[in-house]
Design a protein around this nucleic acid. Structure first.
Length: 440
DNA sequence: TGTTGCGGGCGAT
DNA sequence: ATCGCCCGCAACA
């Protein structure tokens, strides 16, 4: 039983050792005193972890470092500094259960901050101006699904408990993009008003404009990947183009993997958190490109994710406390040709190897018990698990059709007045959607 | 203004 | 003891 096996990288290992390691790597629980450190394969960051899954991410994975999730997760105090616990806030939907002209539902991202969330719920549906309703997550025995994060050595362990019983909200980036767009609209509108002096019956910026029709809220979860240009001017700074190395600006590379591991091992269990910290630098001082050990560039995944979100960027947000003339659905551009988009495909390949070569599907991947979520009236969660996959190394920007879409001319639509902004954006979105939706 | 993480505190189990 | 949750605080964007 101790036959030698040849790995893709030419390394040989004792088969029994590998099996033992695999068992160990897969049997851990976030509460274990000691987590496996002989992980040979780390996972690609999972944007929509669901059900009772566990993942081991590289400590260099920026998304993991930030404990990100596209679900709206809020910090929950579990009185354990070693393990960060987050619980799901659910999703904000239209109290009237309205649908857009395309038959899409409104799934907004609940604000994480309690006050912001309360405020959010006082707003109204961007589609029909009806009241918004928060659908709490009850996927874990009647309680919210909980996610646990724990930094240990060179890895970041993630464990999810519960299965989301609600549709997916827009992602964090989409929500941010929407807010950013809202600001731009407001600024643009007020500027336009000042300049033109009058818009007749145009509502004031804070009122009427709100729902400018941007196909946002409802389509996010469909995972449409629009061309990267869209978020350009508006959220240019938020755009990840430069983020591949954005953590390298960190002056002090005190979080090198090796250092982290050493530190983690030398500290009481409860101190591991310190290693990862929560701000920009976290543990990512290390280079992003493929590391010597074969580590995959997790930043690329995040970049793609962020970029895609920005690209999808919907933009309408707030609502009026009362229905506006011409308000509701006419703000939504005729995305007509778009039937519900095929499920959102994880932007990052699910699994990769911390050491060694990628293989698809990755052996042992099934051990992470991933499974498809339930269906929510047209809402089709995307598989979080490794579906048909691509070699991660093949997923560069250029590999994604959507990312190859040409950028719009600089200044496109941003200096337009309200109407132009709406129509311009809509038209632009439509065009992009029509031309780019790679899934159709 | 909103996000994120920390941690004190409380009530329920 | 554990868990869910509330709250306020701080740092940051």
């Amino acid at each position: 039983m101790s036959g030698k096996i040849l790995t893709g990288s030419g390394l040989t290992m004792e088969r029994e050792d590998v099996e033992k390691d695999n068992r160990e790597v897969l049997s851990w629980d976030i509460n274990d005193i000691k987590l496996p450190q002989n992980v040979t394969r780390t996972d690609w960051f999972q944007e929509w972890p669901d059900s009772y899954v566990k993942h081991v991410y590289s400590s260099e994975d920026r998304s993991a470092q930030r404990h990100l999730s596209s679900w709206a997760m809020r910090n929950t105090n579990n009185h354990n500094s070693r393990i960060l616990k987050k619980s799901c806030l659910g999703v904000v939907v239209c109290g009237r259960d309205c649908s857009t002209a395309e038959g899409r539902k409104i799934y907004l991202r609940p604000a994480i901050c309690d006050k912001a969330r309360q405020k959010q719920q006082r707003r109204c549906c961007p589609n029909c101006s009806g009241p918004l309703k928060l659908i709490p997550c009850r996927g874990h025995g009647g309680f919210p699904v909980t996610n646990f994060w724990r930094h240990d050595g060179r890895f970041i362990f993630f464990q999810s408990k519960g299965e989301h019983d609600h549709p997916r909200p827009e992602t964090k980036l989409e929500a941010e993009a929407r807010r950013a767009m809202k600001k731009v609209r407001m600024a643009s509108a007020s500027g336009s008003l000042k300049v033109t002096g009058s818009r007749g019956s145009q509502p004031r910026p804070g009122e009427a404009q709100s729902q400018a029709g941007l196909p946002l809220t409802w389509s996010f979860q469909e995972g449409v990947q629009l061309p990267g240009s869209y978020g350009g001017p508006v959220i240019a700074n938020a755009a990840p183009q430069s983020s591949l190395n954005d953590c390298f600006s960190c002056p002090k590379r005190s979080h090198d993997v090796g250092e982290t591991a050493a530190l983690a091992e030398s500290l009481p269990a409860g101190e591991t958190r310190k290693v990862s910290g929560r701000r920009p630098c976290h543990g990512a001082g290390a280079p992003v490109s493929p590391a010597p050990g074969g580590l995959v560039d997790h930043d690329h995944a995040q970049v793609r994710q962020r970029q895609a979100a920005l690209e999808r960027s919907p933009l309408s947000d707030s609502c009026h406390p009362f229905p506006l003339a011409g308000c509701p659905c006419d703000f939504f551009p005729p995305l007509s040709p778009l039937e519900p988009f095929p499920q959102h495909t994880p932007l990052e390949p699910p699994v990769t190897h911390a050491a060694g070569h990628p293989t698809w599907p990755s052996p042992g991947a099934e051990l992470y018990e991933e499974r498809g979520p339930a269906d929510f009236h047209g809402y089709v969660p995307s598989p979080t698990g490794p579906g048909p996959q691509q070699d991660p190394t093949m997923l560069g920007y250029g590999a994604h059709p959507a990312l190859q879409y040409p950028l719009p001319p600089r200044g496109y639509k941003w200096d337009l007045d309200e109407d132009m902004m709406y129509t311009g954006l809509d038209a632009f979105n439509n065009e992009m959607l029509l031309n780019l939706c790679p899934f159709r």
